[in-house]
Each structure stands twice: as structure tokens, then as C-alpha cells.
């Protein structure tokens, strides 16, 4: 369910979760756009040579995915601040779930605070953070 205005938002509302495209092809697409063509992002073998379990989704991409979730929920939302902690690798070609929940509402500034998480298939939090968004 999308929201259009601040008045549509409820405390505790869960943003529609979605499964981001963490395929190697899409991560490569992102890496080209962001000029982040390091081996650890675009090649599983290169990543393993660096001691990683496989290619990683860049942190910047994880954050971009979380922002995209916010806009899917509230197309008119203006992100005032988005702060993400990368607690563990988000692996390429592994399924993940992106979720958010409204934890604060400020009527004066017409803004909402949202908890953000990216979890893997085992339910382990890989990325967590918060965003403050202003709504029409």
C-alpha cells in the first residue's frame, strides 16, 4: 500500500517489503553506473581471492535499494537523511529481503522516521539503519 501524504502514515506501519535484484548482472549494472568496478563487486572468483565468500553487493547499492523501498511506499517522500550500517556482507546472487517500519512521526515537520533492514535468507540482519523522510 502506498502513501501519498503525511496524514496517510501510521506509527508502526510496515513498508511493503521486496526482494531486491542482487543478481550478478544487476550488480554489474550498478557498478558500471557508479564507477565501482572493483573485482569484489563484479566477480565471484576475484572476491574469493580477496578472502570474501563471493562477490558483494556494494554498500552504496544496498543503501540505494533501501531508498528505493521508501519511494515505492511513498512516491512523494523526500529523504532528509538516510543512515545505514553495513553489519555483514550482502552477497551477490543470494536472496535478501528489504524491509522498513515507521518508528516515529513528527507532525510539525511532516516527517517520519523509518527503521531499515536488509536480511538474508536465514533471517540475519546484514544492513540496518534509519531514514528520516518528509512527506507532502
Amino acid at each position: 500500500m502506498t502513501v501519498q501524504r503525511f496524514e496517510d502514515v501510521e506509527f508502526g506501519a510496515e513498508l511493503p517489503a521486496f526482494a531486491p535484484d542482487t543478481s550478478l548482472a544487476n550488480v554489474r549494472r550498478f557498478a558500471r553506473a557508479a564507477e565501482m568496478m572493483a573485482g569484489r563487486f563484479i566477480d565471484h572468483e576475484q572476491a574469493r581471492k580477496e578472502g570474501l565468500p563471493g562477490a558483494l553487493v556494494p554498500g552504496v547499492m544496498s543503501q540505494g535499494i533501501l531508498a528505493a523501498m521508501i519511494h515505492r511506499w511513498a512516491p512523494g517522500a523526500e529523504i532528509v537523511k538516510i543512515d545505514t550500517v553495513f553489519r555483514a556482507p550482502v552477497l551477490v546472487d543470494a536472496p535478501h529481503t528489504v524491509s522498513g517500519v515507521v518508528t516515529d512521526l513528527d507532525a510539525e515537520s511532516r516527517s517520519a522516521e523509518i527503521d531499515l533492514t536488509i536480511t538474508n535468507a536465514a533471517g540475519e540482519t546484514r544492513v540496518l539503519g534509519t531514514a528520516r523522510v518528509r512527506l507532502p
Partner: peptide, 16 residues
């Protein structure tokens, strides 16, 4: 690495 305001913890506990 904390991102929670204490007031928001309180609100969350009560409203949920």
C-alpha cells in the same frame, strides 16, 4: 553503531 533515540524506544514499547 546505534541508530535509536531513547524516546522512540519508549514510544515503540508502548504503542506496540
Amino acid at each position: 553503531d546505534g541508530r535509536a533515540q531513547v524516546e522512540n524506544y519508549c514510544q515503540w514499547v508502548r504503542k506496540r
